[in-house]
Design a protein around this nucleic acid. Structure first.
Length: 446
RNA sequence: GUGGCUGUAGCUCAGUUGGUUAGAGCGCCAGAUUGUGGAUCUGGAAGUCGCGGGUUCAAGUCCCGUCAGUCACCCCA
């Protein structure tokens, strides 16, 4: 007997059995449908790229988290660690053919060799959508609408899109003479909700070398509270004493975004101005979005993004501004599981109806009704063995089928099919002519 | 990458200061019940104690390494 190889998966990589894959596919399908409904077009790029393309010239901090190796032709290559950088390369390469503005979405796995944790893996999916080639605030407003429609379509009612604009924060830092320290300051500020004002102030002093008073000014603005109108008004007052062009423009854009969302019909309360949202990534330059589930804010943002001045400066001299966001699929699914979201049924089958195979000689009849139901849009499986109905019904309920269709000699003699609701354990006899319609009714009302 | 905790049957877990053939509940399979699954009873299968080394007369138990999970930092989705 040969030695067996132990079946196992790499640290941070996962298998997806049907019960995980089905809700995942539903989320991806929903996202795809919403993105497309706004005119975002699908693109894809290779998983593997030249390391130089993904890492830039320096490499630097990314070296640790990027899977990088020599291929068989001794090329220095790396697996993509997000969808944004390959998109920047793509945009630089094809902007001539694509024209601007250009709206795309992309969904796919990305890889990061960092340490694992609950809900954090070395292979995970991103679902990005971006509009590039325009600085118009209309594109920023639309991103907020997409996020709203996306979560509504996913079956969420209680969520909040928190919006800020880096121009406001950068304007403040400029006024305080701290513009060159924006990166460490904003990275610290991003932790405000998590660690509190005191610790953020400490970290700002330590990491960015600012005075306690300077840190206090930044935090005062960030912590402006109240409803959206209040916050914007207070921000304007805040800058009244030290007029700043950037901050003024930032506030104007936020004000417009709110007005557009309201007029376009986004329910009140869905969008909230939050001047403390910074996003750690230094390439954001304008509007910033984070999305929180009101019933589970602790899990963090489930859809984030923002505006950047120049996506593709590494690859082209053509300036390509843009704005977009990314759905955190794995985090969202973890949240849905924790919230016992009604769409997570735990089913391990995409089919709703199981045809019990009673009599092997009738297989053709079983497959005929199954096809009849499938033609009516109802996914239907015929049990692959003829045996006692008990075990077949057990199989059906365990896998998450909703209805069973049963017929033996009595039913065939009477010209009917029995349709059984597996949860209620009730069955009705239906002639074949009305079977599809009746089945659809039963599925709809359960 | 740093530090802490965890790893025993398909699942959830017991397992004494190291001491005989490692247990339970649930689940699973078969039968009582050759046309209908949530009950009961009877019987049954199933464990390289994550993996590898070491200490010991003796290791699930102690030590080291390793793999994996998890928590905190870091960073992020």
């Amino acid at each position: 007997m040969a030695d067996l190889i132990e079946p196992r998966t790499l640290k941070g990589f996962r298998d997806y059995p049907p019960a995980l894959m089905l809700p995942r596919e539903r989320v991806l399908q929903t996202a795809r449908a919403v993105y497309r409904s706004y005119g975002f077009a699908p693109i894809d790029t290779p998983a593997l790229e030249y390391a130089e393309v993904l890492l830039g010239k320096g490499g630097g901090e990314n070296d640790r988290l990027v899977y990088r190796f020599k291929d068989h032709g001794d090329r220095d290559v790396a697996l993509r660690f997000d969808l944004t950088v390959p998109f920047a390369r793509f945009a630089a390469q094809y902007v001539g053919q694509l024209g601007t503005p250009f709206k795309r979405y992309a969904m796919g796995p990305v890889w990061r060799g960092e340490n694992t944790a609950h809900g954090r893996y070395r292979e995970f999916w991103q679902c990005d959508f971006d509009t590039i080639g325009t600085t118009s605030n209309a594109a920023d407003c639309e991103i907020a609408l997409v996020i709203n429609d996306l979560f509504a379509a996913l079956g969420f009612d209680r969520f909040e899109v928190r919006v800020n604009n880096r121009l406001v924060l950068n304007g403040l830092l400029e006024s305080l003479g701290l513009a060159d320290k924006a990166v460490p300051l904003l990275r610290s500020l991003d932790k405000l909700a998590k660690v509190g004002r005191e610790k953020v102030a400490e970290e700002m002093a330590r990491e960015a070398g600012v005075t306690a008073e300077q840190a206090g000014r930044v935090l005062d603005l960030a912590q402006t509270a109240g409803d959206n109108a209040d916050v914007l008004q207070q921000a304007e007052r805040f800058f009244a004493g030290m007029p700043n062009e950037k901050a003024t423009e930032g506030v104007r854009r936020l004000r417009e975004l709110l007005a557009v969302a309201e007029t376009a019909g986004v329910p009140a309360g869905r969008i909230r101005i939050d001047l403390s949202i910074a996003r750690g990534l230094d390439y954001y330059t304008g509007t910033i979005y984070e999305t929180f589930l009101s019933d589970l804010p602790g899990i963090g943002s489930v859809c984030s993004g923002g505006r950047y001045d120049n996506l593709a400066s590494l690859y082209t001299k053509q300036v390509l501004p843009g704005v977009g966001a990314s759905l955190g699929v794995d985090r969202l699914l973890a949240a849905m599981e924790e919230l016992k979201h009604p769409r997570l049924t735990g089913a391990a089958t995409p089919a709703e109806v199981l045809v019990v195979q009673f009599d092997a000689a009738r297989l053709g009849d079983y497959q005929r009704v199954a096809r009849l139901l499938r033609a009516a849009g109802i996914a239907t499986e015929v049990y692959p063995e003829a045996k006692k109905p008990g075990p077949q019904l057990q199989y059906a309920e365990k896998r998450g089928f909703k209805l069973a269709v049963i017929a033996g000699s009595q039913e065939f003699a009477a010209g009917v099919w029995k349709v059984k609701d597996l949860a209620k354990r009730e069955e009705v006899a239906v002639p074949e002519a009305g079977l599809a319609a009746r089945t659809r009714d039963l599925l709809a009302t359960r």
